[in-house]
Structures are given as structure tokens and as C-alpha cells.
Design a protein around this nucleic acid. Structure first.
Lengths: 329, 329
DNA sequence: GTCTGCGCTGTAAACGATTACAAGAACGAT
DNA sequence: ATCGTTCTTGTAATCGTTTACAGCGCAGAC
């Protein structure tokens, strides 16, 4: 036998479907009506069909969070924060993963028009005009966790990577480490570009001597190892700043392979201050780019826009702090 | 203006809604019809509403994966495997998170009846009769990645934890480490219970001398640290087996705090062989419980059951292997 | 006793797609 | 020229809800 529908409940309770619906949605009804409906619901094990409901009311009460790589620990921080906010507001959160390619992201945003969810928080790795266009044209609210041009006119909440890199550099200089290498992720990504700018700014501002800069293939552990290998082949920096924690951990492994002590001989700083930073050994000094707060704010922005689609887009930037651990002196 | 519906497309193209639907679903139509419909679709930027579609056809073409803790790296392995299989079959995968409590899991399974997705892979931390009942009564297919009693009559894919623990013990004994401590997660969880049994079996079978056994508060890094602290306060094992990689990494941190060398003085073995095992330092020897394969098989089982709901439930068990790294001699 | 107003409840029309069925067109065979 | 096939297209019912609207009963005011 297939699932009971509201009509089945109605006939079992001897009332109309409208009354069942009203009772289920807490609209006024006599005590006897409530009683009869609830009994029938109980008896039949009725559960309302969310597809039909959301077709009618035009909302799914689901929100989507899209991330590029589930293996990147920064996303678990963000995911937790988003989850907390949206579930408090009565929404379910579903997480999907886009590939690293911008076309995947565009496809996802376009797909939202099918009505899978009432809103989307997306943290795109790469951004192009197509993506921005698809976000602006999207029928459901989208907020971007990441950096997109102000003229795009979309709600965003982003980190201040350049400031973050500066914090790392200052910390190292204060400890007397002035031969600072930089291991970035791909610069054709949003975070890669921001961090490249940050390091370039810092290089100029603090008049850093060149000590090596590498662009890793992606933001993964394996790429970090490869980058480390390449880096230490030709230079001996006294410190390495990495564009995220996975890269940093990869680099630390390579340092160990070279027999170099962290932090005694080489200091290492990661970015994101993810759980991995705490778990790595030695525990990793890392720039906290506020992923939890960004997640929270992004979720709040999304809820606010669902509430009122006419508000002017906001651009929130959250400031970094440095979590000092034992990978720096 | 709001999104165009199929009726809008039909009138724009000067054809009937049925024809539009047919063209969109690739049913036979004349070239001219196809042309007109596609032009109208293009012009209006029409995207079919998946809610309406799934209400009618009774399927959402979405599958759900539910995990207890997104912070546990074992799930990323599993998630990747599941994603690969289901997307190849034309489904979208959405991931949700249950809390650690069994009531959350039950609520999730019950909620599936609302028709959010066509199937569910759940990896429950705790299992009780309510959960099993809810799974059996669930209107959509559910496969459990984890151990539930055979009499439950549900599709399951599970690891062989006892065998896994045995592999770890054998490896340690072969290296001459016979004072083996065991750091488990909560034994009221499914994996906790299985691993406890494994260690008890091994203790008996290999006649291990008691070297300490701790039950951590949960399967997290922090709990691993706490457990390590407690353990080393009273005993000096020559090896520690941990119920998962997060616990193992926590224990290694605590060993470092005590100034004990890994693996020279104390060997450490984790379980799950997650990405963290490779990333930790020293890289962690870990029992590979086949999370990727379990994910893959679970997804396949789910697809098969969606295909044919009458097939008798299968119980697949995947065998462990040991990934030896540098945390053991 | 009649009338007004209020509060419940039921009937039926949506929401936006798919699809069974019927009708019309085109075409070949007789 | 007629008939029967086949192929394409349109009409309308349907999926399971919510909700506008109308109807009905009952209480209170005159």
C-alpha cells in the first residue's frame, strides 16, 4: 500500500481535506476537529508530501550550501556555522559540491531555478562573468561567500586575505624571520588571486627579500607537498606562508623530508585556521580568515534576502586574526 | 516578473503544453515543433520546475547521504565515493548532517517520507529499535552504511572492525610491541561497540597483556587528546590502537606533550585510513576499513533497490587492509 | 422572533508539470 | 475515391497540497 494522502486522512477522520490541512498547519479549529484529525494522522502514519506542499506554497524550506571541495577542512567550519543559523530559522540545510570548474558552478546556480531550494550560499573557487550573470539572474536568492566585484551587485561576505597575509608577515618579521617564501594555490581562483595580491602588497610594504614563491596546482595536501619539494630544491627560506592549511601541512611534510625543523629552522604559517591547523604537528600557526563568522553572516544575509528581495546588496568583509601555534617561533 | 511556466512557453511557441513537455523530454516530434519549442524556451529562459515535475512523476532524482559529523574525515572519503556512483546514474547527491543522537537519525529517516529524495544512505552512529523500525517503514529505500542486526532486514554495507583491530594487533606484535593500549570511542555507538569487541577478541586470541583501555567521549580530536592524557597518566604502553584517525591524532599530540617519540617509544595505529592519516605527522599507520568501497557499494545497493524494491535485503561486508605508515616501526 | 455578525467547515480552484486519450493529418494501398 | 494505418498534436485529468470563497450554525442585540 502506498502512503496515505491528505484525502485519506480526511475520509478516515470524516472531515474535509481543508480541515485536515488547517489542523496540520495550526490554523483555528475546534478541539474536537483537532482531536479527530490528529487521531487519523496517527492511525494512518500520515506524513505530508513536501513536494506537493512546496509546489503550492512556492517554498521548499530548504537552503543549499555549495562548496568546491568537501576535503578542504575550511568548509566544515563554514558548514557548521551556516547550519546553525539556517536551522534556527526553520530551514533544512543541504550541502552539495561543485567541481573546481566555473562551469560546474554556473550549472549549479542555473539549476537552482528548478526550485530545489529557497536560497543558496555558494563559495566559488573561480568566478567569471557567466557565473555573476547566472547569480544575478537566479530566481532564488544567492549569497556568495567569497570575493566578487562590487559592481556585480550581489550579496557577498568575504575575507580580507591581503590583511591576513600581512598579519602573517608581521608575525614572522617580529620573530626575526625575514626570508619568507609563499606557497599559493592557483592564482586563477578567487582566493588564490586575493592571497597573491596580499603577498605582493606585503613584499612591497615591508620590503621583503625574495625567498621563493610557488603556485601549487590546487589547494590540496598533495599539491602542498609538490610545491614544497619544488620550493626547497632551490631556496632556503626561514619561513613559509601558505595559502591554506592543507598546503601548509603538505609543505611541513616536505620540510620533514628535507630534515628541516619546524619552527626552529623554518617557520610555517597556514591560512583558514581550520581544524586541521590544530590537529597538525606541530600545531599550525594559521591566519583565521573568519570562516565561521563568514558562514554565519552569509546565512544571515541569505535569510534577510529571502525575507525582502528588494534590499540593496550588501558586501560584508570580515577581518582576519592570527592564531599563533607552535609552527612559528 | 516571475519565472515562465510551461504554459508560457506553449503560448509563446503557439503550441500546446503537451508538445512542449514532449519536446523537453525528447519524445518524438517534428523538426519544426522542436525548433519552435526550443526557440521559445531559449527566449523566455524557461527552466522546468523540479517540484512540479517530481510531484507528478513521483521521483525527485535526488539522493541523500546522511552523516553524523562533517568534521570526521572518514566521511569525505565515503562522500566522494557515493557522489561518484550516484551522479553517474543521473542523480543529484545532497548531504545532510544528523546529530550524534539517535533521535536525530530517526527524525531524519521519518522525514524522508516527505519525499525530499528518492533514497537515503545513512551512516548512523547509534542504532536502536526505533531507528530500525523507521528504516523498515520508510517509504523510500534506505541503505545503512554501518552495522545493524541481520534480522533488521535492511540493506547494509559494513566494515569488519574486529578483523581490522586484529590486523593492527598482528602488525604491532610482529614489530615486537606487545603492551598494546586501546583508545576507543563511545561503546554505545555502533563503531565503538564493534571495535571494543575486536579488541576483546584480539586480547583473548593473542593473549595480550593489559596495557590500558580508554573510552573517549566521542570520536573527535579533542576526545583523543583527553583520552591520551588519561591513558599516559597511569600506563606506558609500547603501542596504542585508536578507534579512528581523529582519536589517533589526538593521542599522538598527547604523546608529544609527554615527550614520547612516535614510533620509537610508542607506536600508534588509527582506523579509517582517512586523508588525515596521510596528513598527520608522522603519517599514521591506519586500518583501512574500506570507506570508499563501502560508499560505493552502499550507493550501488541503493540504486539497485530503487530499481527493484522487492529484492531481498543484502548485507555486504568489506574487508579491512592495513595501510602502514610511519607511526609504527 | 428576526437580524447581524462571527467562527468553523467544506467545495473547488489553484500550483506546474506529465501523460492517457482522442482527434486530426498525411499517406499508401486497394 | 475510400479506407485504414501511422504519426503528430491537443485537450484534459492528475499528482498532493494550500487557500479563497461560500455556506452554515449559533450567539447576542434589538
Amino acid at each position: 500500500m502506498s502512503r496515505p494522502t491528505i484525502a485519506g486522512v480526511a475520509s478516515a477522520a470524516g472531515v474535509s481535506v481543508a480541515s485536515v490541512s488547517r489542523v496540520l498547519n495550526g490554523l483555528p479549529a475546534t478541539a474536537e476537529m483537532v482531536e479527530r484529525v490528529q487521531r487519523a494522522v496517527e492511525d494512518l502514519g500520515y506524513v505530508p508530501d513536501s513536494r506537493a506542499r512546496s509546489l503550492k506554497v512556492g517554498r521548499t524550506f530548504q537552503l543549499t550550501l555549495a562548496v568546491a571541495d568537501v576535503g578542504n577542512p575550511v568548509y566544515v567550519t563554514m558548514m557548521r556555522a551556516v547550519e546553525e543559523v539556517v536551522s534556527a530559522a526553520g530551514y533544512r540545510l543541504v550541502v552539495t559540491t561543485t567541481g573546481p570548474e566555473v562551469v560546474d558552478e554556473v550549472a549549479l546556480v542555473r539549476g537552482m531555478a528548478r526550485g530545489y531550494a529557497d536560497g543558496l550560499v555558494i563559495s566559488p573557487l573561480r568566478v567569471d562573468d557567466d557565473l555573476i550573470k547566472s547569480i544575478r539572474e537566479c530566481d532564488v536568492p544567492v549569497v556568495v561567500a567569497g570575493n566578487v566585484p562590487a559592481k556585480a551587485g550581489v550579496d557577498t561576505v568575504r575575507a580580507n586575505s591581503p590583511k591576513g597575509v600581512a598579519l602573517a608577515v608581521e608575525h614572522l618579521l617580529a620573530k626575526g624571520r625575514d626570508r619568507i617564501a609563499f606557497v599559493n594555490g592557483p592564482v586563477d581562483t578567487v582566493p588564490g588571486a586575493a592571497r597573491a595580491k596580499g603577498f605582493a602588497d606585503a613584499t612591497k610594504h615591508y620590503n621583503l627579500k625574495a625567498a621563493g614563491a610557488i603556485e601549487a596546482a590546487d589547494f590540496t595536501f598533495a599539491a602542498g607537498r609538490a610545491a614544497g619539494k619544488q620550493l626547497f630544491k632551490k631556496s632556503r627560506p626561514s619561513a613559509v606562508i601558505c595559502a591554506n592549511d592543507l598546503l601548509a601541512v603538505g609543505v611541513m611534510h616536505e620540510l620533514a623530508a628535507y630534515g628541516l625543523q619546524v619552527p626552529a629552522e623554518v617557520a610555517v604559517i597556514g591560512m583558514d585556521d581550520s581544524e586541521l591547523a590544530e590537529q597538525s604537528f606541530p600545531p599550525l600557526t594559521s591566519v583565521n580568515l573568519g570562516s565561521a563568522e563568514r558562514g554565519r553572516r552569509a546565512a544571515e544575509l541569505l535569510l534577510a534576502r529571502i525575507e525582502d528581495d528588494t534590499r540593496t546588496p550588501r558586501r560584508i568583509v570580515v577581518q582576519p586574526t592570527l592564531s599563533v601555534r607552535r609552527s612559528t617561533p
